[in-house]
């Protein structure tokens, strides 16, 4: 499906959290300037932050010789972000569900869960070093699977 993007940017940054912070701030400012309200940008902020930190810390292991590439594009209703690292990748299915009783006290696994919660789509490539995230403001909330009448309320 093609979209008429009102903003489209690419970055390639070293495995540095300061650079990641700069990109994140730029994305949030761009979204705000194009009418994306705080009711959406809190979750987007969280999802992108988690994905960037995963790429830098877990993917590239903070190796200064390795880079993270970020693609960001959006319309008034759809945001797509692609983040790729140069690490060995991982299998998202191997990440334990942090909400299970036995995992509640484990200090891990919540980043991926929050990404999935606040974005409409979170897809990893087969290797697990590239994540595609989409926020579609016209998508129904996750729990409302078949009631189209609720779509307008969600907007």
């Amino acid at each position: 499906m093609s979209h008429d993007w009102i903003c489209s940017k690419d970055w390639k940054i070293p495995s540095d959290t300061g650079d990641a912070r700069r990109i994140l701030d730029e994305v949030l400012i761009d979204l705000g300037e194009h009418g994306w309200g705080e009711e959406y940008t809190f979750g987007i902020h969280l999802a992108v932050e988690e994905a960037l930190m995963n790429a830098i810390k877990h993917g590239n292991q903070r190796d200064p010789e390795k880079y993270v590439t970020v693609e960001c594009r959006f319309t008034a209703k759809i945001l797509q972000i692609v983040i790729e690292d140069e690490g060995d990748g991982f299998n998202p299915a191997d990440v334990p569900d942090p909400t299970l009783e036995e995992n509640l006290e484990l200090p891990s696994g919540r980043g991926l869960m929050l990404m999935k919660t606040f974005m409409t789509t979170v897809d990893y490539n087969e290797k697990g070093n590239r994540v595609f995230m989409e926020k579609d403001l016209d998508a129904p909330p996750p729990d409302d699977d078949d009631d189209d009448d609720d779509d307008e309320d969600y907007l």
Partner: peptide, 16 residues
Amino acid sequence: EFLSSAALNKLIILDK
């Protein structure tokens, strides 16, 4: 205004 899963993890360890 904001906290990430990394902060949540620190709070879990603090709680322990």
